[in-house]
Design a protein around this nucleic acid. Structure first.
Length: 446
RNA sequence: GACCCCAUCGUCUAGAGGCCUAGGACGUCACCCUUUCACGGUGAAGACACGGGUUCGACUCCCGUUGGGGUCGCCA
């Protein structure tokens, strides 16, 4: 059977690095097996889902370069869930319960106080027809619970190995709300069956869901897919990453100039036995991708590491890849020579703007030693310039002024680029040109 | 609180009883390159959480302690 996976975010917020990890891991898994990748919007929570977030999710996935082969939206499939619920009722696996949310909360608190696991006591199961009729006459509408089979459910997890969970430690899950709408746990299984999902790869926060979902697959007459649960990411201080969701949204990382391949390079490797290395393409990440390389302990996500990786990706980016990006930031005229000269000094792509002003103007240099710069301007070789113009020029200057090292170079760099640090002047000067250089050495904007 | 999972350099990890004076990657530091800076290159420092067992022998197995993560929703 062809490998088929899905990424199923709920459009209730922006994608953050945690979600992105699920997306990338699933995508890489599919590609590494020649399978297909599906985007499914889990929007059954009508109150919290909205179209704006749905659009942003698609935008973020495209930014990462993760295209999808198939797309579905749970809100379009309500009839399917209803039919599946009917099938479960017919099998006696779905039963009505009438407790209010307050009542349930009170029961949980009580059991906790008694040091018992806060599991639903199934009292609704004991209700007779007359009892139910009375409750409904009171105006109560039932929610519907899935009757779990007793005993333990086991599966071979693609990352965690043998996992076994006892149904006694879990409540019968609510599948249908009192307002008649279905819940994620249920829709997800119906979708996975209908779309022929072969592998479900998600965070370890879903492991207990897996018990009920495996039982659901069986109850609906389908074979469960292979499950794999990766450990969650934590912050540098070891705290849950979810507390920093806003700051670590893909949208905000993108805004701060993080390269999408930096996100992918880090998140696909963090917590695995493979080294985190700057990669230029997702294809490089696909090669050698293997779920068994993932560890079971929570890994720390460090934004500083991400920034560093992002810079290194820029440093190694070839011009073909950089050209469209340069166009995006308004540097359509920037050519390969320019790119090769400056890429090693970029932290973010936006930094290229400054270096473009250095070579194309207008730029006001920083004047440190006016007399020296006047001498320098006078000694600037006549055009046409060869590739060694910087060497020739500074050699002549050294001879004339007796300056050397920092005192020789630093004022020139400041006057020509307005920066303390930067690319090799040897490469930059020919791009700046004689006229512009002369003006800047004289303190004029050019 | 109950249950599940985890615990090796600062960070991500390799290690499935002797191969380990514990390997790699990132970061850090030093040196080299650059007649400046950055980029790049080379090298160095740096860890088995703690306490008990088991064993001829434990980073590796068992128990406990401590610490961390997860779950316990009419969220996903």
């Amino acid at each position: 059977m062809t490998t088929s996976v899905r990424f199923a975010p709920s459009p209730t917020g922006l994608l953050h690095v945690g979600n992105a990890r699920a997306a990338i891991v699933n995508w890489l898994f599919a590609r590494s097996r020649g399978g297909s990748f599906m985007l499914r919007l889990d929007d059954t929570d009508q109150a919290r889902s909205n179209a704006e977030y749905a659009a942003r999710i698609e935008e973020d996935l495209r930014w990462l370069g993760l295209g999808w082969d198939r797309f579905a939206r749970q809100s379009d499939r309500l009839a399917r869930y209803q039919a599946a619920a009917e099938a479960l009722r017919a099998k006696g696996r779905l039963y009505p319960a009438y407790e209010t949310e307050e009542e349930l909360a009170r029961q949980r608190a009580l059991r906790r106080a008694r040091r018992l696991p806060p599991v639903y006591d199934r009292s609704a199961l004991a209700l007779g027809a007359a009892e139910r009729a009375r409750l409904e006459a009171e105006g109560r509408r039932p929610h519907w619970r899935f009757l779990l089979e007793a005993g333990s459910t086991a599966w071979t997890d693609g990352i965690r190995g043998e996992v076994r969970i006892d149904a006694a430690t879990v409540s019968d899950p609510v599948l249908i709300r009192a307002d008649g709408t279905p819940l994620y746990t249920f829709c997800s299984v119906v979708d996975d069956i209908d779309f022929g999902i072969t592998d479900v790869i998600r965070g370890e926060d879903h492991v207990t869901n897996t018990l009920t979902q495996i039982q659901l697959f069986h109850a609906l007459g389908a074979a469960p897919p292979v499950f794999a649960h990766f450990a969650l990411l934590v912050g540098t201080d070891g705290e849950a990453l979810s507390k920093r969701e806003a700051a670590l949204s893909l949208a905000s990382l993108r805004e701060t100039g993080i390269e999408p391949m930096a996100v992918a390079s880090l998140i696909a490797r963090l917590g695995t036995a493979d080294p985190v290395e700057p990669r230029q393409t997702l294809a490089e990440l696909v090669a050698g991708f293997d779920l068994s390389r993932f560890g079971r302990a929570a890994a720390r996500f460090d934004e500083a590491e991400l920034k560093h990786l992002s810079a290194r990706i820029l440093h190694g980016m070839d011009f073909a890849r950089a050209a469209p990006r340069l166009r995006e930031i308004g540097l359509a005229a920037a050519g390969e020579e320019f790119w090769r000269a400056v890429r090693g000094n970029l932290e973010t792509m936006a930094d290229a703007r400054h270096w473009w002003r250095v070579v194309a103007g207008p730029l006001a240099g920083v004047i440190e030693a006016p007399e020296y710069l006047a001498q320098a301007a006078a000694l600037l070789p006549p055009e046409p310039w060869g590739g060694d113009v910087w060497r020739e020029w500074t050699a002549a200057l050294r001879e004339r002024t007796g300056r050397k090292g920092r005192t020789l170079f630093h004022p020139l760099r400041l006057a020509l680029t307005a920066r303390e640090h930067g690319p090799e002047m040897h490469n930059l000067l020919p791009l700046i040109g004689r006229e512009r250089a002369q003006a800047r050495l004289a303190g004029r904007t050019a």
